[in-house]
């Protein structure tokens, strides 16, 4: 068993503070992101990519704190933690696979962007 009583509560409030802080930081970015291209002198596409990557990293941080502290997985036996986490490698694969696939679906329907081998006119 982990810490009891007031010490346990202290760690709960610390985690809650971190989660709220990260969420507020996300909102700060969401409300100011339109200023970034001119503020830092970067292209809109680059600013967009940076913002999206930042959001995903912050989300993973929040997920870590919820799972490790609130769900207590950080204090369980290491074998249990790994048995729960390792299956998610499949999801990592799914994300990579379907991200590439989704891009391809779109290009299929906008036909001018797909490399279609030149048609051979059989009547000629």
């Amino acid at each position: 068993m982990a810490a009891q009583g007031s010490e346990a509560r202290k760690s709960i409030f610390r985690t809650a503070l971190i989660l709220s802080g990260l969420t507020m930081f996300e909102f700060f970015i969401a409300f100011t992101k339109h200023l970034y291209p001119s503020m830092f002198g970067i292209s809109e596409a680059a600013a967009h990519t940076i913002v999206v990557v930042t959001f995903i990293i912050l989300t993973l941080f929040k997920a870590f704190y919820i799972v490790a502290e609130f769900m207590h997985l950080g204090h369980e036996v290491k074998r249990l933690a790994w048995s729960i986490l390792i299956p998610f490698l499949f999801i990592v694969w799914l994300i990579i696979g379907l991200t590439l696939e989704g891009d391809y679906w779109g290009k299929l329907s906008s036909s001018e962007q797909v490399n279609v081998p030149e048609m051979i006119d059989l009547r000629a």
Binding site: I91, I95, G102, G106, K107
Partner: peptide
């Protein structure tokens, strides 16, 4: 863990369809 897989597939489907819409123009 099984429920997390279900939610992951839903969110990945969202990502795939969103990316396909954008790459479709």
């Amino acid at each position: 863990v099984s429920d997390a897989f279900t939610f992951s597939t839903l969110l990945v489907a969202y990502g795939a369809l969103r990316i396909s819409a954008v790459s479709d123009g």
